[in-house]
Protein backbone atom coordinates (compact mmCIF):
# COMPACT_ATOMS: atom_id res chain seq x y z
CA UNK A 1 0.00 0.00 0.00
CA UNK A 2 1.23 3.43 -0.88
CA UNK A 3 -0.04 6.75 0.21
CA UNK A 4 -2.10 8.75 -2.24
CA UNK A 5 -3.89 12.02 -2.13
CA UNK A 6 -7.01 10.15 -1.03
CA UNK A 7 -5.54 9.49 2.43
CA UNK A 8 -4.57 13.07 2.90
CA UNK A 9 -7.96 14.18 1.68
CA UNK A 10 -9.75 11.93 4.18
CA UNK A 11 -7.59 13.30 6.98
CA UNK A 12 -8.37 16.79 5.78
CA UNK A 13 -12.12 16.09 5.73
CA UNK A 14 -11.99 14.72 9.29
CA UNK A 15 -10.10 17.76 10.57
CA UNK A 16 -12.52 20.03 8.75
CA UNK A 17 -15.49 18.32 10.36
CA UNK A 18 -13.94 18.53 13.81
CA UNK A 19 -13.31 22.23 13.27
CA UNK A 20 -16.88 22.67 12.14
CA UNK A 21 -18.21 20.89 15.21
CA UNK A 22 -16.09 23.18 17.36
CA UNK A 23 -17.50 26.28 15.72
CA UNK A 24 -21.04 25.05 16.24
CA UNK A 25 -20.74 23.62 19.69
CA UNK A 26 -18.40 25.87 21.60
CA UNK A 27 -19.55 29.23 22.85
CA UNK A 28 -16.23 30.74 23.85
CA UNK A 29 -15.47 33.21 21.07
CA UNK A 30 -11.74 32.49 21.24
CA UNK A 31 -12.26 28.78 20.81
CA UNK A 32 -14.70 29.36 17.96
CA UNK A 33 -12.08 31.49 16.33
CA UNK A 34 -9.42 28.80 16.77
CA UNK A 35 -11.75 26.27 15.21
CA UNK A 36 -12.18 28.48 12.19
CA UNK A 37 -8.40 28.56 11.84
CA UNK A 38 -8.35 24.81 12.09
CA UNK A 39 -10.85 24.48 9.27
CA UNK A 40 -8.67 26.69 7.10
CA UNK A 41 -5.69 24.49 7.90
CA UNK A 42 -7.63 21.36 7.02
CA UNK A 43 -8.27 22.74 3.56
CA UNK A 44 -4.60 23.75 3.26
CA UNK A 45 -3.62 20.16 3.86
CA UNK A 46 -5.60 18.88 0.89
CA UNK A 47 -4.22 21.67 -1.27
CA UNK A 48 -0.65 20.70 -0.44
CA UNK A 49 -1.44 17.05 -1.03
CA UNK A 50 -2.92 17.77 -4.45
CA UNK A 51 0.05 19.95 -5.32
CA UNK A 52 2.32 17.08 -4.45
CA UNK A 53 0.44 14.41 -6.39
CA UNK A 54 -0.19 16.60 -9.42
CA UNK A 55 3.39 17.88 -9.30
CA UNK A 56 2.32 21.50 -9.55
CA UNK A 57 3.45 24.44 -7.44
CA UNK A 58 0.13 26.26 -7.65
CA UNK A 59 -1.41 24.45 -4.69
CA UNK A 60 1.45 25.53 -2.47
CA UNK A 61 1.10 29.11 -3.59
CA UNK A 62 -2.60 28.99 -2.86
CA UNK A 63 -1.75 27.84 0.63
CA UNK A 64 0.61 30.77 1.03
CA UNK A 65 -2.16 33.13 0.12
CA UNK A 66 -4.58 31.40 2.45
CA UNK A 67 -2.04 31.85 5.22
CA UNK A 68 -1.61 35.50 4.40
CA UNK A 69 -5.31 36.09 4.49
CA UNK A 70 -5.74 33.99 7.61
CA UNK A 71 -3.07 36.06 9.34
CA UNK A 72 -4.83 39.28 8.41
CA UNK A 73 -8.11 37.78 9.51
CA UNK A 74 -6.76 36.74 12.88
CA UNK A 75 -5.32 40.15 13.50
CA UNK A 76 -8.51 41.98 12.64
CA UNK A 77 -10.69 39.39 14.37
CA UNK A 78 -8.74 39.59 17.61
CA UNK A 79 -8.85 43.38 17.47
CA UNK A 80 -12.63 43.16 17.11
CA UNK A 81 -12.79 40.82 20.09
CA UNK A 82 -10.69 43.21 22.16
CA UNK A 83 -12.91 46.13 21.17
CA UNK A 84 -16.00 44.05 21.89
CA UNK A 85 -14.66 43.02 25.27
CA UNK A 86 -14.45 46.62 26.29
CA UNK A 87 -18.13 47.15 25.62
CA UNK A 88 -19.31 43.84 27.04
CA UNK A 89 -16.88 41.87 29.20
CA UNK A 90 -17.91 38.38 28.14
CA UNK A 91 -16.50 35.64 25.97
CA UNK A 92 -19.78 33.82 25.40
CA UNK A 93 -20.89 34.10 21.78
CA UNK A 94 -24.49 33.52 22.82
CA UNK A 95 -24.52 36.69 24.86
CA UNK A 96 -23.44 38.74 21.87
CA UNK A 97 -26.87 38.84 20.34
CA UNK A 98 -27.51 42.55 20.05
CA UNK A 99 -28.26 42.15 16.35
CA UNK A 100 -31.26 39.88 16.82
CA UNK A 101 -34.31 40.77 14.79
Amino acid sequence: MTLSSLHYFILSAILFAIGGIGVLVRRNVFVIFMCVEMMLNAVNLSLIAFARYLNQADGQLLVLFVMAIAAAEVVVGLAILVALHRKRPTTDADEMNVLRG
Binding site: I32, A93, N97, L99, R100
Partner: peptide, 9 residues
Protein backbone atom coordinates in the same frame (compact mmCIF):
# COMPACT_ATOMS: atom_id res chain seq x y z
CA UNK B 1 -37.16 38.74 11.31
CA UNK B 2 -37.66 35.53 13.26
CA UNK B 3 -34.60 34.02 11.62
CA UNK B 4 -32.36 36.78 12.91
CA UNK B 5 -31.60 35.40 16.34
CA UNK B 6 -28.45 37.45 16.67
CA UNK B 7 -26.53 34.28 17.58
CA UNK B 8 -23.49 33.72 15.38
CA UNK B 9 -23.71 29.99 16.05
Amino acid sequence: QVLQTGLAR
